[in-house]
Nucleic acid binder design. Structure first.
Lengths: 220, 220
DNA sequence: TGTACATCAGTGAACGCGCGTTCACTGATGTAC
DNA sequence: TGTACATCAGTGAACGCGCGTTCACTGATGTAC
């Protein structure tokens, strides 16, 4: 067995990381295998030693988020996944300006949904697994079990993803911010938390988290 | 001026309608100008007599929803836009199984968001106009004015669009239904209505709308 | 009413280009001796 | 320790194909007379 052990795995990882970034940026059709291999420091022909088809790589790149949740990747937005209020931290990180702007490290749920809707079932299944992981995190955030808790978790995940997807497709930056704000507000209230951030993060100010400082006019 | 008056407009409309359907089905990159012109009963070369670039047609096709809101197009899901509870009807129509399944006549906000996020500002502006129309409909649904009302409308639109986008990208039909249900429930409650539909529409049963028949466990 | 004509909607071949995929080959590496 | 070798990661030319766009041309039409 020539080449040091782990060499192949490292190369595969490099291809995957390049793919993840480029697909996030330009979508499935907007990226060629040539682009990805060149970004990984390789040439076209080597690709098929690692993946059988382009869509197989696409699925694998989306699946990366299962091992390394995007919410742990944005600088300045730290999430402690073991904390009691992990779900609350995830909502704020997910709908943060950092996530909004960081296309390269974006959650694939935000960057690729209407792309994925047209792909084969293999791709949709991986996308679904990532979404389910998010739903289950929200589900666990309450002690309670049952249908109403799951429905609440589904709505929270739908709002987080949907709010970001819409915000990214708008031309007006202020409107995009307003959509993120509204989505965060609703998602946090669904989780039983007040929205302590208001509009302040629009100017980049980060306040330490402090409960019940919100300014909401209607009971949750 | 040869050719009867209106001839050119009718041809343009035919191209636009073909484009709308095909883009909804396969996205911007998945459709060729050849496909669209053939669908409209024309040949490739004629295209540039009507539109300057492919992306110009894309923007125009998305803009069709401004003149003819998708919510009025799904069979069996009628919306009276002049009714007092038009917003409530729109939410139910938007998150209906009919809209979920009818890709061809889908709202572009649902079919194309991550496509649009990568297009030039012209396209994003049209997409934005469609989204704004939806937000304003929800905003008007309450007599009240002001920031909180707008925030509520933005959240409602975000949930409607986002819920559908996510549902369409999942492989598991039951999970997709659950996401739609959860989104509808939250959107209706944000609007101040009970969700009277529950899970019943999953089996295709349509009940006449009747207020306060819901089974929600928590006050809105 | 009939005919010649100007208009312009629509045609289809051609352009240059980039794509996904295949495949015969190269050459760097660890191993056997 | 040094050398020959087998392995296989990676190369790059080539394949067939479809794309967006251009453009010289065709021919159906309404109009002028």
């Amino acid at each position: 067995m020539p080449y040091p052990p782990g060499h192949r795995d490292r190369t595969r990882s490099r291809i995957l990381r390049s793919a993840q970034i480029l697909f996030n940026r330009r979508g499935f059709d907007g990226v060629s295998i040539d682009d990805i291999m060149a970004d990984a420091g390789l040439t076209r022909g080597g690709f098929y030693g690692y993946f059988g088809r382009k869509s197989e790589l696409y699925a694998a790149a989306i699946g990366l988020s299962l091992a390394e949740p995007p919410a742990s990747r944005w600088k300045g937005v730290d999430v402690d996944f073991t904390a009691a209020d992990a779900a609350r931290q995830v909502i704020r990180a997910y709908l943060s300006r950092q996530h909004f702007e960081d296309i390269d490290r974006s959650c694939p749920l935000v960057a690729l949904p209407s792309d994925v809707a047209r792909q084969d079932p293999t791709v949709k299944r991986v996308f679904e697994a990532v979404f389910k992981a998010m739903v289950e995190l929200f589900e666990r955030s309450r002690g309670s079990d049952g249908r109403e808790n799951r429905r609440r978790a589904l709505a929270m995940a739908g709002i987080c993803v949907g709010g970001m997807v819409v915000a990214r497709s708008l031309d007006d930056a202020d409107l995009a911010d307003a959509v993120r704000d509204a989505a965060r507000s609703v998602a946090l209230r669904l989780g039983g938390w007040e929205d302590t951030e208001g509009d302040s993060h629009r100017s980049g100010i980060r306040r330490p988290a402090r409960p019940n400082r919100g300014r909401s006019k209607r009971p949750s």
